[in-house]
Design a protein around this nucleic acid. Structure first.
Length: 738
DNA sequence: CCATCACCACTTTTT
DNA sequence: GTGGTGATGG
């Protein structure tokens, strides 16, 4: 480590190693910084901005810096402002999506959108696609809204417009998709809405199709900085290429080994062939890892080595000492959770604060067992992600009102609130309203507010009149620039939304009331912090928050999140749970070696979050999809030399259960790489047939309704005498023939 | 029109 | 366990 010494500079206060320092101060054109996990990437990026503002005298407003999360952006800005005292007014720093939204709001008219356009999330997207599929009379079994959404997303991530898509050769299915894509884009435009992918694609189209706009921004933005470059997609690449065309100052930071977003269109090739696309590129490689101890790093290096598609590099440990990585085998998911809780409790009582520890898993569904166990043990935890606050029904309802107020063309939001709270506007009225609006060539809300309501029955008229007066009042408030939280409060009163929830005394609605109140609070706070921002700004922020943006590092609770979510974070102690084939790697990626490599990178990302202690674990069976399923240790673990970790098998610590309860598979001790893939099961098969009366030791007598598969994979549905119907795996169910 | 219940299919990761 | 959908009765 050396300290920068060129004159009195902010850089002097930042401890940078020689490569970091060189990367920060280099100013000879495009730069690519390969920054392995824990090598000080954020530090370099922050220092680079400081260098540009302080040394190169670049105006903050002329720097375009794309980060991976809003949180990272906010932290960097705060650091620059408060620690270094640099004015960052106008600095373009944020996620690609929010930066593009900012750009598009300013130039919306060029693309034929109002500046107040709405941002549709995947939920809205699916709703809109459902409507279109219905219109086109396409059977949902042939094409689901989700699959179409995926296809459209693919187009947009590669910046393929409907016209370009239509010009391509393709199967009947492809042509159908193209038709829907075009209809979908038309519908979005009519609703003055953009989806997530549009934010990127339309920004590219803006620069591509409007030479003067492009020239302006190309001239204006002197430097373009991109973090996590390995996770950019084609649209983002085009955008960067266009934006930096004039000054050619591109500063990209990333790590191909941490590319984990291929499934949503990211192209690792963006980083791997950066040099080819930006001539005169200088490459910097950061390999000094300051985060993890030696044992964790060797484990990480070993884990990622099998990947073929990567730029060769190896992280160097700088921290001395360290305890071995622990790999543990458990009987089932509950045992795994219990053991993790034990270790957590011991650590909290000892050396490590709860907030410094994290449980990382592959899928959100895995969080459940841990939540239950931790709650039982009274260990405070914080679940990051899952269904985020803003995706809850009641919150989306409230936001739909606000969105509709900001953009009366948004029919999806209007349909959402039409009968929420219930006001007698059911399916029939909705259909009639849709029809009527179509005739009048207006949006739903416009029709309700400005057309005679005579064609509707008296009941419907009353309901529609309700909506009309609500929006007239809210519209006036908005026009008087009253604060968004007052508008929300007024909405809740006028519509009786809260009253409606209060009348329903179920536990769910109690929770919902709390959530709505939380929304009011959030909006109030936001309003205080951003007195000059509008309702539109709030809605945009809400649409673009990511799960991790909500995360608070200082909280004194154990962190639970997916490995994807944990990217960019670090914890003193990390539990990598559910390291099982079928989960990590996911079964759905078994057939594709490239996807397996991405799963392996995810495993690598998980490992490299750990600073001092890493526990990897797997269970031999776990409760999934409503039944107990046998599991085998992850192939990623099996590929690591057993000398690189300490193995603990707690599954054999149990006293052998009575014979009738013993699962009928041979439980082999895990023995590192020497173990073969044959986690075989004994052939002690019983002949079952449909309609047979059987006896279960917990549920009692029942009848076999259906049998699927055979041998070790046999599953059956059994109807028990208590009326319950259960799916079970034959070899665990231990059914006796009655 | 609305609330309720039974049944279904689905659970990879997310801006 | 979830959540969405469809049939049924109030």
């Amino acid at each position: 480590m050396i300290k920068a010494t060129s004159g009195a500079s902010i850089l002097d206060t930042m401890v940078l190693n020689p490569v970091q320092y060189e990367a920060v101060c280099y100013d000879g054109g495009p730069q690519l910084v390969f920054a392995g996990a824990g090598t000080g990437k954020t530090r370099v990026l922050t220092a680079k901005i400081a260098f540009l503002i302080e040394q190169k005298k670049i105006l903050p407003a002329q720097i375009f810096a794309a980060t991976f999360t809003n949180k990272a952006a906010a932290e960097m800005r705060a650091r620059l402002e408060t620690v270094f005292g640099l004015p960052c007014q106008g600095l373009w720093i944020g996620t690609f999506h929010s930066l593009c939204a900012r750009l598009l709001r300013r130039q919306a008219d060029k693309l034929g959108f109002p500046a107040s356009f709405t941002i549709y999330d995947s939920d809205d997207q699916v709703k809109l696609l459902k409507k279109i599929l219905l219109q086109y009379k396409i059977d949902e079994r042939v094409m689901t809204p989700r699959s179409v959404a995926g296809a459209i997303s693919k187009f947009k991530n590669a910046c393929v417009t409907p016209a370009q898509a239509a010009a391509r050769e393709g199967s009947f299915y492809d042509r159908e998709i193209n038709r829907i894509y075009e209809a979908y884009q038309t519908a979005l435009k009519k609703a003055a809405a953009l989806d997530f992918d549009d934010l990127l694609m339309q920004s590219v189209l803006l620069l591509r199709n409007f030479g003067d706009v492009a020239a302006h921004y190309q001239d204006f933005f002197r430097y373009v900085l991109i973090d996590e470059y390995q996770d950019t997609n084609l649209a983002q690449f085009y955008f960067v290429k266009l934006l930096a065309a004039r000054h050619n100052h591109v500063f990209a930071v990333g790590d191909d080994d941490q590319s984990i977003y291929g499934w949503r269109g990211a192209v690792v090739d963006n980083i791997l062939s950066f040099e080819k696309h930006f001539t005169g590129t200088k490459i910097f490689t950061l390999e000094q890892n300051y985060r993890s101890t030696g044992p964790i790093l060797s484990f990480a290096n070993e884990a990622i080595t099998p990947n073929v598609h990567r730029a060769r590099k190896r992280l160097q440990a700088t921290r001395p000492g360290g305890v071995p990585v622990v790999v543990s085998q458990y009987r089932d998911d509950r045992d795994e959770a219990d053991a993790v809780a034990d270790t957590l409790a011991a650590s909290i009582a000892g050396a490590c604060a709860a907030g410094e520890m994290a449980i990382l898993f592959r899928t959100n569904a895995q969080s459940r067992v841990f939540e239950e166990t931790l709650r039982k043990r009274k260990i405070a935890y914080k679940l990051v992600g899952g269904t985020s606050f803003y995706e809850r029904k009641e919150i989306k309802d409230c936001l739909a009102y606000l969105r509709l107020l900001a953009n009366p063309l948004d029919d999806i939001s209007c349909e959402r609130i039409l009968n929420v709270p219930p006001r007698g506007l059911g399916e029939k009225t909705e259909g009639a309203l849709l029809e009527y609006a179509g005739q009048k060539q207006k949006s739903l809300l416009q029709t309700i507010c400005s057309e005679p309501l005579d064609p509707f029955g008296p009941r419907a008229q009353r309901g529609l009149q309700d909506i009309k007066s609500v929006f007239e009042l809210l519209g006036e408030m908005n026009a008087r620039k009253e604060s968004p939280h007052e508008i929300l409060n007024q909405m809740l009163t006028l519509t009786g939304y809260l009253d409606n929830l209060e009348n329903d005394d179920s536990e769910v609605s109690e929770n919902r009331i709390e959530n709505v109140n939380e929304l009011v609070n959030a909006l109030t706070t936001w309003n205080e912090e951003n007195p000059d921002k509008s309702l539109c700004d709030f809605l945009e922020e809400v649409s673009l928050v990511s799960d991790i943006d909500e995360w608070d590092k200082t909280a004194t609770a154990v962190n639970l999140m997916t490995m994807h979510c944990a990217k960019g974070l670090e914890f003193k102690t990390v539990f990598l749970v559910g390291c099982e084939d079928g989960i990590l790697p996911s079964r759905q990626n078994f057939d594709d070696e490239r996807k397996i490599e991405e799963e392996r990178r995810l495993f690598y990302v998980g490992i490299t979050r750990a600073m001092n202690a890493l526990y990897c674990s797997y269970a031999l069976q776990r409760f999934r999809f409503g039944m107990v399923t046998p599991m085998a240790p992850s192939r990623f673990l099996r590929a690591i030399d057993q000398k690189s970790y300490t193995f603990i098998d707690t599954s054999s610590a149990y006293a052998p259960p009575p014979r009738s309860e013993t699962p009928q598979f041979s439980r082999r001790d895990f023995a590192g790489p020497s173990v073969k893939d044959d986690y075989s099961y004994s052939q002690e098969t019983v002949q079952y047939h449909r309609g047979q009366q059987v006896l279960h030791k917990v549920y009692g007598q029942g009848k076999i309704l259906a049998i699927n598969g055979f041998g070790a994979d046999m599953r059956m549905t059994v109807l028990f005498t208590d009326g319950s119907r259960r799916k079970m795996i034959a070899k665990y169910a231990q059914l006796e023939i009655a």
